[in-house]
């Protein structure tokens, strides 16, 4: 007996909380991927990243309503359309933001922090004005509802779906990073921006593409988010701090580090939440992260090469 639970119960609790943690992990990974490639590439911390996610969530909400009203027969498929729209809209807004705002501030990292924070406030107010201050929920198609039972535990279908989605998107980003022309240029710019220009890489163009792609992925994260939380204008703010924690903890330039750190943080959060309270879980998680960062200030994963 431990904490008043039998060991059989404890096993089930750990698995169930572990699974809940995996869904949180999925959202963290999708958010952190975008934030990490933007931060790694241009040293810009996009404080509005949470709002880009919520933009994706609202797009999903709109899409579900449109399908319900006009195409009820195809409602089962709306989620795929919604993801595509969320990606395109958030990505397009990201490109526009880069062009209008960020590119004028590259030499001033602190100013980009302020500017993107301002943008996040503007976006929140825009959501409030357009969609209303109340939370909105998305109706799930019937095939995503319910759960599968494995022995003594239940596993939600939508949770499995979000995880599958995360796996695919992470795979695509990894492929793009390590196999495509764009990825080659991104990695070159991350290593040495000046020299990248001098070997013929158009760094400004790569910046814009990267920012757009990062924001687009945040939009898809928003689609996934609608399944586990309700969408409100300020919901994005709850995630930006955690996501940034994930990026710093993982080492800003390592895809694998980002994934490992998202896993650690979401699992400890979710498991601790069950045994203590939400705030205690957060305190403990932060303490663990701070402790590990003192031991490894450069993050979890760093490539070792000669300087």
């Amino acid at each position: 007996m431990l904490f008043g639970y039998s060991f059989g119960d404890l096993g089930s609790i750990l698995v169930m909380q572990g699974f809940a943690g995996l869904i949180l992990f999925s959202v963290f990974v999708l958010m952190a991927l975008g934030l990490a490639i933007i931060f790694g590439q241009m040293g810009v911390i996009n404080m509005a990243h949470g709002e880009f996610m919520i933009l994706g969530a609202y797009m999903t909400f709109l899409c579900s309503n449109l399908f319900q009203t006009y195409l009820p027969g195809l409602f089962g498929l709306y989620f795929f359309v919604a993801m595509a729209i969320a990606f395109v809209v958030a990505g397009a807004l990201g490109l526009a933001t880069e062009w209008l705002l960020i590119r004028h501030l590259y030499a001033r990292p602190l100013d980009t922090l302020l500017a993107t924070w301002g943008l996040s406030l503007i976006m929140q107010q825009a959501f409030r004005s357009i969609f209303g201050a109340r939370e909105v929920g998305v109706e799930l198609p019937s095939w995503m509802m319910g759960s599968l039972t494995f022995g003594s535990i239940d596993v939600q279908i939508n949770g499995l779906f979000v995880m599958g989605l995360t796996l695919i998107i992470t795979g695509v980003v990894a492929l793009l990073m390590f196999r495509s022309r764009w990825g080659l240029q991104v990695r070159a710019v991350v290593t040495n921006r000046t020299m990248s220009g001098a070997v013929g890489i158009d760094t400004r163009r790569i910046d814009r593409l990267t920012f757009g792609l990062g924001c687009g992925i945040a939009g898809v994260a928003g689609s996934a988010f609608t399944m586990i939380g309700s969408t409100s204008p300020s919901a994005g703010q709850l995630y930006i701090v955690d996501t940034f924690l994930v990026v710093v903890f993982g080492g800003a330039q390592s895809l694998l580090g980002t994934i490992a750190s998202a896993f650690t943080i979401s699992q400890s959060q979710s498991t601790l939440e069950f045994f203590t309270s939400g705030s205690n879980a957060k305190v403990t998680t932060l303490l663990i992260v701070i402790g590990l960062l003192m031991l490894r200030p450069q993050g979890l994963f760093v490539l070792k090469v000669r300087k």
Binding site: R187, N192, I201, R306
Partner: peptide, 17 residues
């Protein structure tokens, strides 16, 4: 000023862009 974390091949490929 080569790109230290990238492979030799990738370094040359940056010039091909």
């Amino acid at each position: 000023q080569i790109f230290g974390t990238m492979t030799v091949r990738e370094n040359i490929e940056t010039g091909l862009v």
